[in-house]
Amino acid sequence: MFNLRDKGAEIWESQGRVGRVAIAVGAIAIVAALPFMGGTFLNTPVADYESVLVYPIAMFVLMAIGLNIVIGKSGLLDLGYVAFFAIGAYTMGLLGTKTELNTWEILPIGIAMAMFSGIILGVPALKLRGDYLAIITLGFGEIVRIVALNLGALGRSEGIQGIPTPPGIFGIEYAFDSHRIYYWTLLILILLAIWMVRRLSARRAGRAWESIRQDEDAAELLGVPTFKYKVWAFVLGASVGGAAGVIYASKTLFIAPDNFTLQISILILACVVFGGMGNIWGVILGAVILGYLPDRIRFLSDARLLVFGLVLVLMMNLRPDGILPRKKREKAIVKKDAS
């Protein structure tokens, strides 16, 4: 079968340094220019095109990159990823309304909170494997939402209102409806996350995750401290989710437990699997498509989630490895293992 991923890798590897920089700059420029293409066929019929670019698309991409560290790289099935998104958002909501701190000061705190909760969840849960891990993480996601729904300090079902927008930096002002600015901010975060994941994948951590994904017992026997690296994967994934949550809260200015349901976890998981687990470009493509599609087909209005479900079923049956699967070399090992 035609493998777009290998084709892309071939082109990339055949280029010299200049060519690679040119491709990267060109790609970033095209992506950064997306908000100006509202008038074209890309336009979403009902929702404002630029706001769709921010949420869901850019937000999904960021979270899918984070979840990909957990699921795609290390093979840990996490069904409660929305918890970290919620923790980031509620950190922003609480500190933003109750204290003088601004978004940029809260961002590291939110990330730290998400990472901390990643440790709290990860240390007991990561002793379990497979489906049990899935159900524990799912439970964690629900617990976070239920706590937010029932604790007076977190505003119960009304949530937190009047969250401040980020203060301007370098003379760029963040207004509530300046979607472009948020989009570019998220783009920077996405690039940072991509950079982080790519650097880590090429190093010890990446190799440890890869070995855990393929055969945890063998990795353990060969001296890989599997538990430590599993917790690391969890915590790094959580940090990305927390960052997304902080930006989300200061963009929407209002958060409520209803924004953090299990459906979000499932959707992000769908992005990862749909695009091609383990391959960061595939995951990004998956998140773009799954974030964009429901709004693009809004002319179907009521039936759009139904069509969305059909697309999921159809796609998984036609390309079970996702649109841009991981490298053949890595896949071959898995196949051999399965037979």
């Binding site: 699921i71 099935l77 998981l269 769908a270 699997v273 039936a303 139904l306 998984m316 898995v334």
Partner: peptide, 23 residues
């Protein structure tokens, strides 16, 4: 095809079912 692809496709089916009934 492993565990995750069928999981996603089952999620798709359950979305189709609940959305049809919702409509």
């Amino acid at each position: 095809s492993g565990v995750l692809a069928p999981l996603i496709s089952a999620i798709g089916v359950s979305m189709v079912l609940s959305e049809s009934v919702r409509i």
